[in-house]
Amino acid sequence: MINILLSAFRMSLPTLFATIGGYFSEKSGVAQIGLEAFLLTGAFTAASVAYGTHSMGLGYLSAGIMAVLIAQIFCYLVLVVGANSIVIGTGLNLFVLGVIPLVSKSLFQSTGSTPAIETNEFALAMTFLIFLVAVIFSYWLSEKTLWGLQMKFAGEKKEALKATGISALQRQWQAISFGAFITGLGGATLSTFLASSYSPQMSAGRGFIALAAVIFSGWNLPRALIVSLVFGLCEALQIQVQTNPEISAKIPGEFIQMIPYLVTLIALLFFKSKNQAPQEIA
């Protein structure tokens, strides 16, 4: 039982990171469906850098930074140009899905998985540490600082923030970038913690599940993390079920793979989206 819970926690790490990232963007008033892009960017960057430099730490750092760079495209187009955030988010996902194989081919002569990285116990422990730091810092930033309050106002009533001399654009740009960094770290956990290399499209929709968690929890950070954990539980169960010969004989593999998405859907079925969304989210 404990095993399953621990396994659930491990499996949900990427989603948990993405949930934090999605929270910051959404709470500041910008809908964010580009979390997949940040996850994949982080995953690929971490796997490549860790392979090249033999350093997990550098892998994580570069993953976060690369995700932030990608996010700048999003920020510029949505906040300055005024394009629709869903359109740009979709574009960003496409972009990253296309760019990664190209870069991979140039670096590793293949568009498939990157070469394997050696992992060690220390690196694995570091992942948990990074997660802990990320969560605590994010919570503090959002709830205990003036910056966090200003970010919330950006999503609830831009005019009120503007009257204090700070533009919503500023806080939104910062929130999205910070969120992208955290999500990039989550991507790094995908390829260096849950696996030992990057494989194509390995995020498998976690970015969207993270977004669903944010929405489902009413845009509340602690609750969103718990919801993400529950989704992670489903994934862990899925693996358990697949490796269990009795059950996997009766239920086909494809059905089991559907579980996380099906559960998300059913959760949304029972939850009526109240108007808890940030008032001025776009």
Partner: peptide, 8 residues
């Protein structure tokens, strides 16, 4: 995959 980049 370049097609995806182009579209994006």
């Amino acid at each position: 995959d370049f097609s995806k980049v182009l579209q994006a």
